[in-house]
Amino acid sequence: MKKNFFYRIILPLSALAVVVLLGIASGSAKIDWQNFVHDPILELRLIRVAAAFVVGSSLALAGLLLQAVLRNVLAEPFTLGISGGASVGAALAITLGWHTVCALALPGMAVIFALLLLGLVLLLSAGKGAESMLLSGVIAGTVASSILMYIVSVSDRDDLAGLTWWMLGDLQVVETKMLCLAGGFLLLALFLIRYFARELNAVAMGSLNAWSMGVDHRKYTLFFVVIGSVLAAQTVALAGLIAFVGLIVPHLVRRFYGGDHRYNIWPVGVWGGIFLILCDWLSRVVCRSSELPIGVMTSLVGGSMFIYLLNKRRG
């Protein structure tokens, strides 16, 4: 029991404290610690660290949900075409100039388009099982990325820079209101997923086994996919496209905490946040003159970790 308490509570919370301190303390500008209450840089850093935590945690949870529902460990929030939809929405908002009119236009469009695409995927694969849903998602994502490329090709030079940053992931200009909203939904989602963890386990075992366990497979598949999609869409709205977190974090956490969703929801949520704060810190430290976009950083870190794990497993 003591060992359990250490791995589930002490270790993640101390790791979180360490990365939060790292995230706040380092960067190109110095914080005025004598007068820290009014220091604008400290405030910016705090928002940024909080945003990294919410985004990382949401992505990791969304990945965990979609992997369980689609019964595929390579599924991630972006496999269902959610990112494709969100990026089309956001790109439209940028090229039409809506984001200058209303601050919530870009996140709003991103979420709306992500959910639209999800609706399409669900409609295409209705009642045909997990493989069909995965395939429909891949196809919808490809179509969406072609549309995105078209939008990029016809957009102004001014819009292009913003669009590119956003496509690479960007934790810098996070709206505080949007952040609070996303944080609130993250908490709600954590609670809901933990409460329905038994159902998530059942859904991961397929339709017949789920029925034997007293779980309506279709109903709960829809429930978990919608929660996962909103989690993923809100990260896209907050910080653009950040790949690999939804893949690597659930994968690692399952290794150490086991696959039973009754026991790995909380670790996935916390370690997802820690992972992204760490990546964000690295992106500022590695390349001091010009920051690496966070999406590039997660791909580099996550990708190399994944290849290492795959090789280790085979060997």
């Binding site: 059942a202 075992m205 017949l208 086994n209 366990m213």
Partner: peptide
């Protein structure tokens, strides 16, 4: 009522012990 089916399509890796406790989780 418990049912045991033939299909074995589990991609997520539950451990043997976890699987037993999940099957019996009702």
């Amino acid at each position: 009522m418990g049912t045991v089916w033939q299909d074995r399509t589990l991609d997520l890796d539950f451990s043997v012990r976890e699987m037993v406790s999940i099957i019996a989780s009702a």
